[in-house]
Structures are given as structure tokens and as C-alpha cells.
């Protein structure tokens, strides 16, 4: 793939549709010295959905909702990999999971509503998109419950762990695909609803970052915890900026 094509793909879909060929031409003629500026420009535009042209009805909401799910999937997998106990509630620390409350409220607000007329199509899309990850997950559960592999070692263990993470990644990607596809047959949330939803999710992530930081200050810092705190804080800031920018979009 040519670099100019790859750089154009970094831009939000509406910008690609409107200016994609022109951006590729500009990058192609300017050469490597324009690569950084193009990538930064793409990042800036993702943070400003109010600037995207509405090339098809509801496209901005669909793309923002898909991006929100993508960020959430990546962070969920990261938290799963890090096994962060400081963010999970226990009997003696019931408030440790409080950061999830605004995030769940945000997701409830951002959830698209099915159209009665498009219900059949929606079910078809859900089945087609999630059938493969559901089968993978079922296969994994079956293997885990067979009992023959209770304490795998060596290559078997590596294979099991690899399968487990591959299934999680695959499921995450398919969930993003589902939101992108289903967005065409459901009623997407309005810009105002998405604005509030993004602010709520950003608040939850900021709480999670602060909670992780507080724990690291009490105990000790390691590279993994620093990276996780940075990822949570950066995601919170990005969602906050995007959410605030959505206010500008006309209903």
C-alpha cells in the first residue's frame, strides 16, 4: 500500500469521501516531509466531528459511536491484560468500581434505537456479524470445560493463551463492525445525546485514571501501570474534546 493511501485512511470517513483523493495527491507530490503533518491533521479532525461534512444522513453519529466502541474495546482488553485489581470492587472496597457508573450511563445514552421496520435486517446483521466470534467463544468455553486441559503446560499453554486473546480481539473487532453496520438500519443517537454520552464516558475514564494513579502513588509505579494511567487519561481527554466539539453540530 502506498504511504499516501495509508495516510488518507487515517482520516474520518466523511473527510476521506470529500477530500480523500485531493489529500492523496497533495501527500504524493509533497513526499515524506508532509507525512507527519498529514497524520497530525487526521488526528485533529477525529477530535472535531463538528467539522465533518454530513455526506450521508446520520453518518457523523454512526462514526462517532463506532469510534467510542473501538476506544472502549481497546481499553477493556488492556484492562483485562493488566488485570487491574485497583479498579475492581471487592467486599471491603465496594466503591472501587464506581468509575464504571458514568461509563455505563454514557453507553446507555449512546445506544442506537432499533427501527420497527428494520428489525429483521438488524437481526440478520447481528447474526452475520457475531456468529463467528460467538462460535469461537463457544469453542473456547468447550475446551475449558472438557477438563482434559485443566493445567496445560509448554506449547499447549501458549496455544491456549493465544487462542484466548485471539478470540477476545476478534470479538472486539466484530463488535465495532456490528456498530458500523447496524448504524445504517437503526436510529442513531442525536449529536446532543452523543455529546452528553461522550462527556459521561470521559468522566468515568478520568476517575479510573485518578484511581489508578492514587493506588500507584500509595504502592509503587511500574511501566505497565504508568502506560495504563496514560492511556486512560489520554482517552478521557480525547473523548472530552470530541464530546465538547459535537455541541457545534446542528441537529
Amino acid at each position: 500500500m502506498r504511504v499516501s493511501t495509508a495516510l488518507v485512511r487515517l482520516y474520518p470517513p466523511a473527510i476521506r469521501e470529500r477530500w480523500g483523493s485531493a489529500i492523496a495527491e497533495e501527500v504524493g507530490r509533497a513526499g515524506p516531509r508532509s507525512w507527519l503533518n498529514s497524520a497530525i491533521g487526521a488526528g485533529r479532525l477525529w477530535l472535531h466531528p463538528g467539522d465533518w461534512p454530513e455526506t450521508t444522513e446520520g453518518e457523523t453519529s454512526r462514526v462517532v459511536a463506532t469510534a467510542l466502541v473501538a476506544v472502549s474495546v481497546v481499553l477493556t482488553l488492556w484492562l483485562r491484560a493488566a488485570g487491574v485489581g485497583s479498579l475492581s470492587a471487592t467486599v471491603d472496597r465496594p466503591a472501587s468500581s464506581a468509575w464504571l457508573v458514568p461509563i455505563l450511563a454514557g453507553f446507555a445514552l449512546a445506544t442506537p434505537l432499533p427501527r420497527r421496520s428494520g428489525l429483521g435486517r438488524l437481526v440478520t446483521i447481528v447474526i452475520r456479524t457475531l456468529a463467528a466470534p460467538a462460535l469461537s467463544f463457544g469453542f473456547l468455553c468447550l475446551l475449558a470445560n472438557l477438563g482434559a486441559f485443566d493445567h496445560p503446560a509448554g506449547v499447549t499453554r501458549v496455544l491456549f493463551v493465544g487462542c484466548y486473546w485471539a478470540t477476545l480481539f476478534f470479538g472486539g473487532i466484530r463488535i465495532c463492525v456490528l456498530v458500523a453496520r447496524a448504524g445504517r438500519v437503526v436510529v442513531m443517537p442525536s449529536a446532543h445525546r452523543l455529546h452528553i454520552a461522550l462527556l459521561l464516558v470521559a468522566t468515568g475514564l478520568a476517575f479510573a485514571a485518578a484511581q489508578s494513579l492514587a493506588l500507584a502513588l500509595r504502592t509503587s509505579f511500574d511501566l505497565g501501570s504508568v502506560m495504563l494511567i496514560c492511556a486512560l487519561a489520554t482517552s478521557a481527554a480525547a473523548l472530552l474534546v470530541t464530546g465538547l466539539d459535537l455541541r457545534r453540530r446542528r441537529p
Binding site: 495516510l7 482520516y11 473527510i15 470529500r18 477530500w19 485531493a22 489529500i23 497533495e26 501527500v27 509533497a30 508532509s34 507527519l36 503533518n37 498529514s38 497524520a39 497530525i40 491533521g41 487526521a42 485533529r44 479532525l45 472535531h48 463538528g50 467539522d51 465533518w52 461534512p53 457545534r248
Partner: peptide, 16 residues
Amino acid sequence: RLGAGSLYGALARLES
């Protein structure tokens, strides 16, 4: 010349 990111970011913002 402006970089592609600056130019098309400006065009998108001006149009919006």
C-alpha cells in the same frame, strides 16, 4: 505550501 493536514483541516473547518 501548507501541509495536507493543515490545508484540509482548515477547509473542513471553514466549510463547517
